[in-house]
Amino acid sequence: MTKTVNQKAWLLVLPVFAVVAFSAVLPLMTVVNYSVQDTFGNNQFFWNGLGWFQELLDPTSQFGERFFDSLWRNLLFSAIILAIEVPLGIAVALSMPREGRSVAFCLVLMALPLLIPWNVVGTIWQVFARSDIGLLGSFLNRIGIDYNYAGSALAAWVTIVTMDVWHWTSLVALLCYAGLKSIPDAYYQAARIDGASQWAIFRTIQLPKMRRVLLIAVLLRFMDSFMIYTEPFVLTGGGPGNATTFLSIDLVKLALGQFDLGRAAAMSLVYNLIILSVCWVFYTVMTNVDAGNRTVLTESDPADAAAAAGSLPQATTIPLDRRAA
């Protein structure tokens, strides 16, 4: 092979490597270093091997129990917000106008919560939901519902979930809207001609066409909610008790509150691995969906095929993406 490969392109990637090295690789190495040692302050470290990891993954130990509690809490939280935000986002996207002046208005309105910094979101809800002066909190109490997110675990969860739904449903809706917009009008016309009901149109046209963006939405929302920190930290600080102590909050408590660097390092590595593996699963699923959508040339003229067999090595299949429009 006489191909001359242009090596200069690597130079362009170099700054990124440098930044990533300083911002990710070096800190990560430090964390790995911490995770196999114990420290009692004064910058004195003692070798602990895989001790922290064993303890972490053993639910019967105190540290392990704490970790798994946070993990389940976090998974439950992600499951709840996905179960609410995805159907709600789809519903919102479906009810958005498809053309006209109101489109721009809707889009801006939807984008607003996404533009607010996370700690501000936390603060807004902290004030909004306070049972003494908050609009929501005092209103609920006035109509006879005993609501205090600082005192009741259920109230804290409801508040955090509502806050997340308020904050992030528009992201799901916007992604779905983009997916819906890409469906040509002919599909809707054809469905009307075929006498399809709204539900049938949703199931046979809109949902399949939204599958890709939905996967992206689910991935983004899962990762985000799995790593949620700022809003619950501002709102409840992980309480009452440990009711809203998610992994990231627990990690900060452990590392910066108790200064237990070894345990915290081990926990953050495991946390990281969980996120990476979930990412990988999603990525695989998504690329498989793409591959499944590719058209394959299967029906060629039999006469052609026969003729081709005579003088040519058989059938090269070329991806058909170009055929589609």
Partner: peptide, 18 residues
């Protein structure tokens, strides 16, 4: 870029040239 073979412009090999 081709997997195999060469592309010549005015006799000059431009195979890998972007």
């Amino acid at each position: 870029a081709p997997s195999e073979g060469r592309i010549l412009a005015d006799g000059k090999d431009v195979t890998g040239l972007p």
